[in-house]
Design a binder for these strands. Structure first.
Length: 451
RNA sequence: GGGGAGGUGGCCGAGCGGUUGAAGGCGCUCGCCUGCUAAGCGAGUGUAGUGUGUUAAGCACUACCGAGGGUUCGAAUCCCUCCCUCUCCGCCA
């Protein structure tokens, strides 16, 4: 790939790799400039100093090891007992020195590693520059036209309460705030949505459906970069190193960690519907009403493993695959090209999909589609056999397709009718057993057994 | 959770303190040969790090035989801890 000048004013060499110490070592100024478009400070000089210290230690200890190996080998060949003893004595002192230098090298390595793990991915050159979400770049509005209401559209929490579709009180009673119980036809609507989305992505978009574990080792979260930095947003086991997944991206992306895949299996597409567990500590107090921001929700997630040269195109396709869902549901939505300052930690380029919700009067983020380039692949050590026969990091991408609660919010608010009921979007009718309207649910449950 | 067996290269499978990065076989790659997709012959065939080299090829060294510690001049080989797989028992959806 040819080098080119980017809008950021530095040369882009194709797939240079993030958190690759070699890249930092060889292009320190460029690295600093690129990473700081995220509106963060990185101590590049400190990193370089640590790196050269580490390498000096390695060189030093390896020389001694070579000496010892040669000497020990000689011991085995030496027949004369006296000569033998002399050699052993000669080698005996080296062990301590090696142990000491090894420890120092390991220490330097670990320190460097911690620093590198704490540095986010480099934004792609085409990502708009900006300091925070206010500078994200919205694309044209798409999908169904904005609906004109001849009555005042209600927010979903009012609709849900009136139709008894969500029981917030009892959910809070058993699980605390930011929990909810879906009831009756709304629970079924979620199930229908999941079914339909999975069908679309497997049948129309060529994904393989998977069901991953919902609890994983810490190192898995390091791989996708939720750890070490965002531990406080995750639920975890108090005795073991097991964490509940905040998104299916975590287990699914890590499927092939520590592996070298055959080049010809790529691209690999996986889709998974899973619950997502998030502590949402950072946003305490925000979005407290309704089911927009909750501790647990279902999400259909798309994950791709691709060759580096394909990831930019694959991101565009991924976005369209996610948009297709909003499109078919007849919703009004827009794309947001996230600016450098608002990019997620591991992402090089991200498009958000936002659906308009007329009840709460806001754009709801229902999907975040990201190209992680080789950032996660590097952290999780996911490689493929490149054309030249050598192992190379592949690129990973992920995006929601889509997140369930917010899609349900959008459906409830957009499909509400003046009598208070909710119309079922046409594509979901077959998945709802032919039902076209959602009305009031029984307050406790059906009063009679119907068998 | 308790008892027994075991975890070696892409796969199978030796090795059980020294010249083994690892026999042998299979697979794969390249070459030769054979008048056809079979057989045979020869060579090659892990990953990472450090140094050197033009951020190349190559070369040298270091590390890796489930993971992490230990013993030793020297460990795939001995010791300890943990993990995983198989299996018998218990428990359970």
């Amino acid at each position: 790939m040819a080098a080119r000048l980017t809008r950021h004013g530095f040369v882009w060499r194709g797939h240079q790799e993030m958190n690759d110490i070699r890249y930092i070592r060889e292009n320190p100024a460029e690295f600093k400039q690129r990473i700081e478009t995220r509106n963060i400070e990185v101590d590049v000089d400190g990193i370089l100093a640590l790196d050269s210290q580490r390498r000096a230690l390695i060189t030093q200890v390896e020389e001694i090891k070579a000496e010892r190996n040669a000497g020990s080998k000689l011991v085995g060949k030496t027949k004369d007992p006296e000569e033998r003893q002399a050699l052993i004595a000669q080698m005996a002192g080296l062990g301590d020195k090696i142990t000491e230098l090894d420890a120092q090298a390991a220490e330097a390595e670990a320190t460097l590693n911690d620093i590198l793990l704490g540095i986010p991915n480099l934004p792609d050159p085409e990502v708009p520059l900006g300091k925070d979400e206010a500078e994200n770049v919205p694309g044209p509005e798409r999908g169904a036209p904005l609906r004109e209401f001849d009555f005042e559209p209600k927010p979903h929490w009012d609709l849900a309460e009136e139709l008894e579709l969500i029981d917030f009180e009892r959910a809070v009673k058993i699980a605390g705030s930011r929990n909810y119980i879906l009831r009756g036809d709304l629970a079924r609507l979620q199930r229908a949505l999941i079914d339909w989305m999975l069908d679309v992505h497997t049948q129309r978009h060529g994904y393989l459906e998977v069901q991953p574990p919902y609890q994983v080792f810490g190192e898995v979260l390091v791989g996708t970069s939720q750890l070490p930095k965002f531990a406080d947003t995750l639920f975890r086991d108090i005795e073991e190193d097991k964490w509940l997944i905040p998104t299916a991206e975590v287990p699914v992306t890590n499927f092939y960690r520590e592996e070298i895949l055959d080049g010809d299996v790529l691209p690999v597409y996986h889709v998974a519907a899973t619950p997502c567990f998030r502590r949402e500590k950072v946003s305490a107090g925000r979005d407290v009403r309704g089911i927009k921001r909750v501790f647990q929700f279902m999400k259909v997630e798309l994950v791709k493993f691709v060759k580096p040269e394909d990831s930019a195109n694959e991101l565009e396709r991924l976005v369209e695959e996610a948009c297709y869902i909003a499109e078919e549901l007849g919703l009004h939505y827009r794309l947001l090209d996230l600016c450098t300052g608002d990019l997620g930690f591991g992402a090089a380029h991200t498009y958000d999909i936002e659906i308009w919700a007329p009840g709460c009067q806001e754009w709801l983020e229902v999907s975040s589609c990201s190209n992680m380039r080789d950032y996660q692949a590097r952290r999780a050590n996911i490689r493929y056999r490149a054309e030249n026969g050598k192992p190379a990091y592949l690129h990973t991408l992920n995006g929601s397709g889509l997140a369930l609660p917010r899609v349900m919010i959008a459906i409830m608010e957009n499909y509400q009718q003046e009598d208070g009921s909710i119309e079922v979007p046409a594509v979901l009718v077959p998945y709802m057993g032919g039902r076209t309207v959602i009305g009031k649910q029984p307050p406790i449950g059906p009063s009679k057994h119907t068998v």
